[in-house]
Write a protein that binds this DNA or RNA. Structure first.
Lengths: 365, 365
DNA sequence: GACATTAATCGAAGCGCTTCGATTTAGTGC
DNA sequence: GCACTAAATCGAAGCGCTTCGATTAATGTC
């Protein structure tokens, strides 16, 4: 193994000079830099990561904790992880992969043993058990998702409340007066996942503001559940002219179920999804959607961490504004129908609105 | 930060004794072990990972290189990665996540800097550019997938050739005489991905042995491509009574396209998939399938690596035998039809067989 | 031209751990 | 009871790097 003393000897300088060439922490003459760089290349020198970590108390490694739970769309996690790795590399860091399996012990272990300099935690719950541990860590962390209490933490996520609002407002703008939100599986709400609750809060609040009848419906991530829910919706709420779908796993089955039931999209039913853009774009029928910016969240969480490692102050909360792209699945109410039916529908909707929207701000739990 | 000298002082022993208690590399009296363990717990001591790596030349970290290419089913990668992390933890190791983006430089970097002790590489191509680098590494590695030349390497994967055979034999056993294999997107074959080629080789070889007309059809991972392919197949090969699908992304669309075209599954068309078990099980129509054992491949690749790190000899090639589970998508030919049509079909098939199977062992490239 | 600055480099200490003799004590065989 | 082995523990060296004064040389200042 080539070590720093070998490089130093080869370049005719002291080891500390080599170190300073590498770190740039002291000024070194251009000529010396050139010679040292040449020696490094010629000898194929790579600083020993452990030695470096020991001497500098920086490992240049970040921990990424990924979720293993049900009801989470795997490709999004993957996109996110890839973005974290890519960005970390740009900042000369590597990424250690942890699963939730070990619980908080895993994070504590890699942090306390100085294996990692900082931690990114995904899938944060409203009342996440890991928060006390994260607060007590002597290393910075960034949370993807917002817990109920964010004090002393750095959090980032899509602004799901605004996303819920944006979906509803897009539909309200098209004249829809009765809109359903089809969300995550019940367990996601039950365990208190912030994004699910916030989306529905935003959706319902906007519904109330716009005088639209808004209702929220959790949905299991199976084809059968999707079909059953559609049957129920069509039976119980025939006045619905639009739905917002916030559940990647059953996006296609839901749309198909509506179509199979004779609802043409968008003529009879408008659909807005909250999902990764590529999913919406490449669906059979391109769907109007609010993008889940996995790449951006990943990138920015690393950038936040880097800033914290540099001792900079960072905003405690970063809410990325939703971006809604209108595609082929949404249309103005009544586009393909006679006026009377529409009016009737809108009336029914308006009557129902107040009750529904006021009744609760989140789905039953 | 608590260090080993603190623990030693607290327990009234020397630092080396604490180290030996932790590593078990020398015998320590039960009483001393007890005292040291108690001190460790009481002080919350965690050995410094960098110091340990420096002194022992073992980082207890494995590198996992995941693919970013198109045409690969993301959930399978994830399953695999989770299994690697879980197994690594059982062996007291952590996992560093690398993407293919950095190319071989990334692997070389983490290996040469002693950041990791060993490397797992996924998605190996037949003529993978990374092979020379892996061979020249002074650290063990395990490849998921088989390159053309496996000398000096350790490889593991599902035995895709046997999987292709198993699918065909299952169908041949049910009396099918004309079977199509719908495979990965063309680019996967073109870049020389072993598993795609091997599956079709096994499939075609078994077809020839059993006197079945076997044909192979790459398929892009889009719903439109799936539908187009089905249209083409139905037009050009009306004699087909069964298909093997080895392409997770379009599994459901393909089945649906066949059904939409009036082919009942399994009465008119038997379908066997090569895909993760949960996908086959939870499809709308549970599909007969050969499982892709992501969990097992991940686990065993780590175990192979651990053995190599312990200086043990390991088998250079591990081919996991395919496991075919018959579900609702396959049936005996002619189950729901009159005999004549079936006979005619079988005749056509037999005539075509020799030509097709002999023509080529792999799809055009 | 003596003195203070700045730039460039060196030497040595030390990061926290493992490991290799060396040492001590306790057993074992005859 | 003497030599010998085994068990338990210690002390010190050293893993490869960074970093902090210290040193030297070059530059400016009045």
């Amino acid at each position: 193994m080539v070590k720093i003393t070998d490089v130093a000897r080869h370049a005719g300088v002291s080891p500390s000079t080599v170190s300073y060439v590498l770190s740039g922490k002291r000024s070194i003459s251009a000529e010396t830099v050139r010679r040292v760089r040449a020696s490094i290349r010629e000898l194929g020198y790579r600083p020993h990561a452990g030695a470096r970590a020991l001497a500098s108390s920086r490992s240049n490694v970040l921990a990424l904790v990924i979720p293993l739970r049900t009801g989470i769309h795997v490709p999004v996690i993957m996109q996110f992880a890839v973005s974290v790795v890519t960005t970390a590399r740009r900042h000369d860091h590597d990424v250690l992969l942890l699963t939730q399996e070990e619980g908080e012990e895993g994070v504590r272990r890699v942090a306390d043993s100085a294996l990692v300099d900082a931690v990114i935690v995904m899938d944060v719950q409203l009342h996440d058990e890991r928060l006390p541990m994260l607060r007590s860590l002597d290393r910075p962390s960034v949370l993807i998702g917002f817990p109920a209490e964010t004090e002393d933490l750095t959090c980032i996520d899509l602004d799901f409340r605004a996303a819920g609002e944006a979906c509803l407002e897009h539909l309200a703008g098209l004249g829809h007066r009765a809109v359903g939100l089809i969300g995550s599986p019940p367990e996601v709400y039950e365990r208190g996942t912030g994004y699910a609750q916030r989306t529905s809060e935003g959706f319902l609040a906007a519904a109330e503001r716009h005088g639209v009848a808004g209702t929220v419906h959790p949905c299991e991530a199976t084809v059968e559940a999707a079909r059953a829910l559609v049957d129920r919706l069509l039976a119980e709420q025939p006045e619905l002219t639009a739905v917002v779908i916030h559940n990647e796993s059953v996006l296609a089955p839901l749309v198909k179920a509506f179509q199979d039931a004779g609802r043409r999209v968008p003529e009879d039913l408008s659909v807005v999804a909250i999902c990764p853009d590529d999913l919406a774009e490449h669906a059979e029928l391109p769907l109007s959607s609010v993008a889940i910016p996995a790449e951006e969240v990943g990138r920015r969480s690393v950038e936040l961490l880097m800033a914290k490692l540099d001792g900079e102050e960072v905003p405690p909360a970063t809410l990325l504004p939703p971006r809604l792209t209108a595609r082929a699945s949404t249309a103005r109410v009544g586009t393909a129908h006679a006026g009377t039916a529409d009016t009737a529908r809108a009336d029914t909707a308006r009557a129902g609105t107040a009750g529904t929207a006021r009744a609760g701000t989140a789905p039953a739990n």
